[in-house]
Every structure is written in structure tokens, then in C-alpha cells.
Design a protein around this nucleic acid. Structure first.
Length: 270
DNA sequence: CGCTGACCCTGACGGC
DNA sequence: TGCCGTCAGGGTCAGC
């Protein structure tokens, strides 16, 4: 489910409710996630004050005075603020009780998400090899061009590789390639240097637009307030197979690439 | 090292 | 109505 804009939307929603509060306790109802939740997690976090909320790629970081909680939402995860007395429902696997009585509730039907403790998050194995943030200056056309030289994988799969760039997933990669007029199947190493300028611009644009809309809700994404994101309305190609291209009218094509649905305009994208 | 495909899990949806 | 197959925003890992 969530890509960078959805995780960032969640982070922004939780920030005012969490920063400055202490973590009273963690209630774990189901520890079998992508990786089992470590038995020691509650004791590493209980009693600690939350100093800030961060994000690295698709990971949300709850930074305390003494280490961080790393949360990944997988395909179907969400974090939502609930009142103390709200009863947990199906797939509400973890509650983080805050010092003011509110709770942050982790729900994840498919259990592809994860929770880890990290004394130094930037050194954690899950974060250590993640590529640059796409909205940072370090991510530019020159960087993307260099990393793609000699690569025979499709540019779409190259962009979805978290070691190359952080936080991009299936929706926004499809959209960015449409904006840059690049065919998703084109070998990354066979794209001319000049085309990386519009590609980087397309990535930035689509992420910023999605952020402004509170993310994309396809079926089940909700923000920390329980509300969906509205960027689905602005998608140009994703989930639009057979519909006319908004630029040229040609029907949008769907094909599978690396086991992921890939949408593009066969006329605009080359 | 680079790349491909299987796999983890639940729920929604379409076809029959 | 119900059953069955397919697909879904994620990522890791084994094996070539």
C-alpha cells in the first residue's frame, strides 16, 4: 500500500500527537509480522520521551531520547490515533500508549509490515543501504544516470530498487515514467543522459502532488486521522488500462513487469 | 555482481 | 448464494 507520500502523510499526522509525549507502554496482540516483533521491544521503548518523528524511504522513525522505533507499513499497514477506550478490532496488532492517554494503533491485515527497535537508526540493517531521498538535492539527474549505466533491467525496476532511490513504489514509478515520456520496459542502461532531467522532475512532481492530496487510497490506505488520500483522482496511467491517454487519446496499456502491474501510454512513452 | 521468480499473508472482486 | 481463481501500495531470498 503505502509509498513515500502515504508514509509521509502518516508521519505528518502523527507528529503533533506524539512529539513531546512519553511512551507509556506497548500492547502487542500479534507479533507475527514480516519479521516477528522482538520480545524486548516494549521494554526498550516504555518510559521514553518522543523527541521527533522521522522518515527514511518507506520507514517511519519514532525517535526517542534513547533509540528509535522503526515502522514499515508493508502493503496494507496503517497507523491511526485512537482514544484510550476505543476497543481494538481485527488486525489491530499493536497499540502504543502515550502519556496523554491517546494511543497509536498499528493495523495490518496482510502482516507485511514490521516494527523494530534501533539504537542508531541510520546504522540499522534495514536502513543502511537505502538510496537517497527522491525529494533531496542529492538525488538528481546525474546520480540517476550514473547508477543506471550498464544496467540491463527495465528502468521501472531500477527505480523501484530501494538501494537506488528511497520510497518509490509501483504507483508513483508508473506515473513518473508517464510524465517523463519514458517506456517502463526500456533498459535502464540504454537511456540517454538528457532524459534523466525530465525523469527526476517527474518523480519530484508526482510525489509532491501526491503529498498535497494526502496520498493515494486505492483500496485501504488511511492516514492517522482515519481518512483516505485523494491522489487517486489525479493518476494518469496507474489502474487505467484501456482508458484513453489524457495526452494523446491512445488506450493505456497494461503489462506485467517483475510481477508488478505496469501501465503506460504506448504512443507517448518510448 | 546482476537479475529472475518464488514467497510471505489476508481480503476484495469477478466469473461461473 | 457460494466457490474458485486472480490480484493488490511491500520486500527478501535462493539460485542461476
Amino acid at each position: 500500500m503505502p509509498e513515500l507520500p502515504e508514509v509521509e502523510t502518516t508521519r505528518r499526522g502523527l507528529e503533533p500527537a506524539m512529539v513531546g509525549r512519553r511512551i507509556e507502554s506497548l500492547t502487542i496482540r500479534e507479533r507475527r509480522l514480516r519479521w516477528p516483533i522482538a520480545a524486548a521491544l516494549p521494554e526498550r521503548l516504555a518510559g521514553r520521551e518522543i523527541l521527533s518523528l522521522g522518515r527514511r524511504g518507506k520507514y517511519l522513525l519514532v525517535n526517542t531520547e534513547d533509540g528509535s522505533l522503526l515502522v514499515h507499513l508493508g502493503m496494507s499497514g496503517s497507523l491511526r490515533l485512537v482514544a484510550r477506550d476505543e476497543q481494538p478490532g481485527r488486525h489491530d496488532h499493536v497499540d502504543i500508549a502515550l502519556s496523554d492517554g491517546q494511543r497509536v494503533r498499528f493495523n495490518d491485515p496482510r502482516r507485511f509490515g514490521s516494527l523494530h527497535f534501533a539504537a542508531q537508526p541510520e546504522q540499522h540493517a534495514l536502513l543502511k543501504h537505502i538510496g537517497p531521498e527522491p525529494l533531496d538535492g542529492a538525488f538528481d539527474a546525474d546520480y540517476l544516470w550514473r547508477t543506471s549505466r550498464g544496467r540491463r533491467v527495465a528502468i521501472k525496476q531500477h527505480l523501484m530498487n530501494g538501494r537506488i532511490v528511497a520510497g518509490l513504489g509501483n504507483i508513483y514509478v508508473n506515473e513518473a515514467l508517464f510524465l517523463a515520456r519514458i517506456r517502463p520496459t526500456r533498459a535502464a542502461g540504454r537511456i540517454a543522459r538528457a532524459r534523466f532531467e525530465p525523469l527526476v522532475a517527474g518523480i519530484r512532481d508526482v510525489l509532491q502532488q501526491a503529498l498535497a492530496s494526502g496520498g493515494t487510497t486505492l483500496r485501504d490506505f488511511i492516514g492517522s486521522d482515519g481518512r483516505p488520500g485523494y491522489f487517486k483522482l489525479s493518476l494518469k496511467v496507474y489502474d487505467r488500462a484501456g482508458e484513453p491517454c489524457q495526452a494523446c487519446g491512445e488506450p493505456i496499456k497494461l503489462r506485467v513487469l517483475g510481477q508488478r502491474a505496469t501501465y503506460y501510454c504506448p504512443a507517448c512513452q518510448r
